[in-house]
């Protein structure tokens, strides 16, 4: 078993109006930031997950997204799986 770090981004599907994103998009120019477009507000969900390999971890997290973490009627998601031990080794070398 390896402990993976899962990161899931959930946001409203493209084509579904995001009133929070629009409000932020209108607020930024007021602070002098011009040229901002396409602001979308979503959720970031992180957790550790024990799995035998990355493929298994990815398929489990995908299932969690479909069943709970996202409501696919209105939301889409992206997920990433990182092997924490490899990540750590990478940083140490």
């Amino acid at each position: 078993m390896t402990n993976f770090k899962a990161t899931v981004h959930v946001s409203l599907r493209s084509g579904i109006a995001d009133p929070q994103g629009l409000t932020i998009e209108r607020a930024l120019p007021a602070l002098g930031y011009t040229g901002v477009s396409g602001v979308r507000v979503g959720k970031l969900i992180e957790f550790g997950l024990d799995a035998s390999d990355a493929t298994e971890a990815e398929s489990k997290v995908g299932e969690m997204c479909e069943r709970l973490l996202a409501n696919t009627v209105i939301e889409s998601y992206t997920l990433s799986i990182v092997d924490e031990s490899e990540d750590l080794a990478g940083r140490e070398s």
Partner: peptide
């Protein structure tokens, strides 16, 4: 599904 109210 139910989304946040338009106008928040």
């Amino acid at each position: 599904a139910l989304r946040k109210n338009e106008g928040l």
